[in-house]
Design a protein around this nucleic acid. Structure first.
Lengths: 338, 338
DNA sequence: GATACATGTTTTATCGATACAACCCCCAAG
DNA sequence: CTTGGGGGTTGTATCGATAAAACATGTATC
């Protein structure tokens, strides 16, 4: 294991000078820098990150806590975040919370271990009642729905507006009996499901279309299987419907499958729209209309917020920043095409 | 920042005793342990991971280098690896190599920075000529195809055998003009594409079906778009075919889409099979037949190999281990169902 | 009573880098 | 000639934990 001392000896300078070269400090003669760099190459020296971390108090790694990376939406989000973090010279370690409140609390506890310089938490289980838990003196950015007026930065999707636009899109295309396949919005909890439900209701009201509770098909989790089961159930129950707004694209892919299982033709008999605009949606048969919340913008913003908090660390506690992404409606075959 | 010293003072013991408690060492009186734990809770003490790392030379984190986490196959693999690593108390940091040789070399270089205790490299760009690069004194496990008789552990897919079984499955279902949509296998390079091409050829030969180069449709990268374009091209070129073996499921989803674009009915006119058995395959319309290489087993094995190397560090260089996963043929609608 | 040994606990040195402040040298300004 | 200041370089202390070994204390064995 070659250390900074070895390099110093080889180059005939002190360890500090080597450190200066490593960190691009000014006040190092060009000739000296050259000599040091040469020694570094010759010895194949690598900084010991642990030692640097100990001294500087930074780790250069941020945590990203998502329910599961194998859900396309989160996979795509993770990819964007890793890319964005690289621009700030940050590595990303991924935690899977399993979409549970406990998992998310674990991720929070973990970060307080100072393993990471900061945490991006894509929350689904935490609610407004948990805001206290976020009052830690530790850089955190919440990614996803808007949790109340929490004490932390957050980057949110335009959940209500997007859902409204999706529903309005179906209405525009002639649908009047629009089913909602959601994640089972319970009571007043504020989460992705309830927010998108709100948007759905608003669009119906605006268009003067009556809300029918029988058209709401909950799925326990945001999975393809849940979507497929919900769609089959809707058909089997004999409820008439000519459109479906799905809480996520993953669910929507399941819904397309469930409708196919029952021989329902999309978009002729029923039109379908999702939310998230995951890449797969462009290749389903029929291709899936969706709401595109601009992942790349969200990921970039979340990382920027976090990076800012990290460098500002120790300074006075600034007011929490909030960013709501923009969105576009992507019309594909499942609602009759563009 | 509360340190181990603070805890020691509060509990009236030495720092070492606190350390012993933290690391579950024996030889600590129950009563003392209790007192220490109480102090830890009271002060809300957290170990400083950087300090521990520096002293022990371990980081508790492994690197996982994959082309892109937003490709379903790699997302699902990453999820399995994170889960498996958790069983060994290891965290996982993800690097994206962009499916390029340079990216993979970067990932290798990075790990030598000692940022991670070891690296799982899901390689696509490195070839047999690069085995020298892997001769580092650093725990590495290659995940994916078999790179020659490299000097490192690897966990491989049953590429040739799986491809042969997939092709044989199509033949069994009556196909005689079987197209291959692959990643553009060039020359003698050993990679996923060339290995699966070999399996395809073997199956044809075994069944006495003539190979026709016009049925091979290369795609530049393993994407849905590539698959869709290849399928459209095959149809447009007027080459007759009644089956398609796709190098990966992601490509296969694109192929299904491309065939739909040209009004070709699956499985009636053309049967399609992929490789990897990603979750989405169960929900496409028609659902996708595939080769299931048992991701979970592969991920578990890769992590176990790596963990072993990590704990064995410093001991004599053992011979490289190799594991080839088993596989099953999953027959779904795209080849006529189960 | 001496020896060996297991259980508990502490002392000391150290992992490898960097913050901080001191230092030297040289030149410009007064 | 003295003072001041910036470029260039270095010595020292330190980040917080743990390895290793020493040090107690008890207690079983002959």
């Amino acid at each position: 294991m070659v250390t900074i001392q070895d390099v110093a000896r080889a180059a005939g300078v002190s360890a500090m000078t080597v450190s200066h070269v490593l960190n691009d400090h000014p006040h190092v003669k060009a000739e000296t820098r050259e000599r040091v760099l040469q020694a570094i190459n010759q010895l194949d020296y690598r900084v010991n990150v642990a030692a640097r971390n100990l001294r500087t108090g930074r780790t250069g790694t941020i945590g990203l806590a998502v329910p599961e990376v194998d859900r396309p939406y989160f996979g795509q989000l993770a990819a964007e975040i890793i890319t964005a973090a690289a621009r700030h010279n940050l590595k990303v370690a991924i935690e899977q919370t399993g979409a549970s409140r406990e998992g998310e609390l674990d991720a929070l506890a973990l970060s307080r271990n100072r393993l990471y310089d900061g945490l991006i938490l894509s929350t689904v289980g935490l609610g407004p009642t948990d805001t206290d838990l976020l009052k830690v003196d530790y850089p955190i950015v919440i990614l996803g729905e808007r949790i109340f007026d929490g004490p932390v930065d957050h980057v949110a999707m335009p959940n209500v507006e997007g859902a409204r636009a999706a529903t309005a899109h179906l209405i525009e295309r002639g649908c009047r009996r629009i089913a909602l396949v959601d994640g089972g919005a319970q009571g007043e909890e504020v989460n992705v499901s309830s927010l998108r439900f709100t948007g759905y209701r608003e669009a119906l009201d605006e268009a003067g279309v009556a809300f029918d509770a029988r058209l709401v098909a909950p799925t326990s989790r945001f999975t393809m299987e849940g979507g497929a089961a919900a769609a089959r159930r809707l058909v089997d129950d004999g409820v008439e419907f000519d459109g479906v707004f799905c809480v996520t694209d993953t669910v929507a892919i399941g819904v397309l499958r469930g409708l196919a299982d029952r021989g329902v033709r999309v978009p002729d008999e029923v039109k379908v729209i999702g939310f998230d605009n995951i890449a797969e949606g462009g290749y389903t048969v029929p291709s899936l209309s969706s709401i595109d919340p601009d992942h790349s913008l969200m990921a970039g913003t979340a990382v920027r917020f976090l990076a800012k908090r990290i460098t500002e660390k120790g300074k006075k506690r600034e007011v929490a920043r909030e960013f709501v992404s923009r969105f576009t409606v992507v019309a594909r075959e499942s609602t009759g095409g563009a």
